[in-house]
Amino acid sequence: MQPVFVTQKDYADLLAGNCEDEIMQELTNKKIILSHDGEDEDVLSWVRKQVPQPSISLCYFILSERCNLACKYCFLGNNSERRKLFSTNDMSREVADRAIDFFVRQLNFSGIDFEKNASQIIFFGGEPLINFEILEYVAQRINELRSKIPVLMSCEMSVITNGTLLTKERIIKLNDLGVTVNISIDGSTKEANEMRVDIAGNEVFDRLIAVLDLYKELHIKPSLSVSLSEKTIKDLPGLLSLMEKYDIKGLGYNILLCSDNYQLPDEYYEKASKFIIDSFKEFRPLGIYEDRIMRKLNSFAHSQIHFSDCGATAGGQLVFAPDGRVGICHEMLADKENFVTTVNDTTFNAKNNPLWQEWASLTPINCDDCIKCEALGICGGGCPVNARYKNPAKGLHVVDERSCVHAKTTLRFLIEDLYNIASGKTQG
C-alpha cells in the first residue's frame, strides 16, 4: 500500500459518494479502497504466507558475561542483584571452535545464498573485550575460512563494546581483522552519559572521549551505539557535534527497556521516537546512517513488508554463551532461558526446531492485536522479552508497546515527508 494525497474537497466528495473517477481509480490501485469484498482478507492471507521461516544468518558470540561497568539502564540486568546470575567463566578456544562449526552448519541449512548475502557475527557480552584473546582468535579463524567455506565468504564481524578497554594496539588489531567496532556512548556530555558507570559508580565519559581521540589520531572511524537516555534525547545538537568532531558516519539508536531496576515515564517512548526522526532529518543530508529509521524508510519507500525488527523474531539468530550453550535471544543470557542446546549438538537444525519456529512467528503480521494498525507494514514489532515484562500473563505473544509508538510516529513522518517532496515538486 502506498499513500494517495487528495485535497480536503476531494475527500469530502469521496465521503459524499461523488468522487472523481481518476481519484477513485488511484485509491483502488493503491488498495485504499477495496475492489471487492474479501480483498483485505486475501491480502492478509497472502502476506502471512510470506512470513520467513527460521533461517540462520547471524550469531552472537558472548565472549564473556562479565562486565567492568554497571550501567544503570543495563537491559541484561548486569548492574544489580542479578549480576550474580552471570557466569564468571569466559569462552574458551574449544567452545569457540565448536561454535564456529555449529554456526557454519546452520548457515548451510538456511538456504540463503551467502555469495549475495552477508552472514554476520557479533561479539557481545558482558563486555566482550574482557576476553580479547578469543575475539582475536575467532576473527582470525573466520578470515582463514573465508576462501574455504562459501557461507563465510562475505561474513561481517562487529563488536559491541563499552569502549573502556580499547587501546591503540587493540584498535589497530580490530581494524586489521575487519571487525567493525561499535562504541556505546550516549551523547557529548557527562550529563547525557550519566547512566554509564563502572562497578564503583564512577562515570566513564572521560575515558570514552580519550578512546575516540585515539580513533581520530589513527584515522579510523568507529560506529556508535547510542542508548536514548532521557538526557540524551534532550541534546541532539550535542550528539551532532560529537559525530562531526570524530567523523562518525554510522550509528544505531537503542530505545531503552524497562526492568525491575529501571523504569521509564510513559511519555518517554513518544519523545524518543521524535528524537530519532529529528536526527534523521539532520543525518540525511550528511549521509549518516541510523539503523532503526532506515529499516522503516526502506520498507516504506519500497512497499516491502518489514516482518521483523529483531534477529531473534526473524528466526535468524543464534546466541553462543561462554559455556557453549546455544540460545535464541541474548536478552535471556542471565537466566539462560531458551538456551536449548549446546555447541556439541551436531544434529541441531534451527529450521525445524520448535523454539526457532515459534520465535519466527512473532511478527506483528501474525498478531491479531496489530491487524488494524496503520503502521503494520513497516513495524516489524519490538522485543518480546520487553513486552512480556510489561504484560507477563501473555508470555512472549504480546505487543511491545515501545514499537507501537515508534512505528506509528515514524509512519506519520514518512507520509508527511513524501507529501512535502511530491507537493514541492509540483509547486516548484
Binding site: 485535497t7 550528511l286 519507500a301 513524501l418 517532496i421 507537493s423
Partner: peptide, 20 residues
C-alpha cells in the same frame, strides 16, 4: 490530487544510499 512518482521515494533518501 498530488501525483507521487518513484523519484519522490528516492528523494526521501537524500544523500543516503538506497539499500546496538
Amino acid at each position: 490530487m498530488v501525483q507521487v512518482e518513484k523519484e519522490d521515494y528516492k528523494e526521501m533518501y537524500g544523500n543516503l544510499d538506497e539499500p546496538c
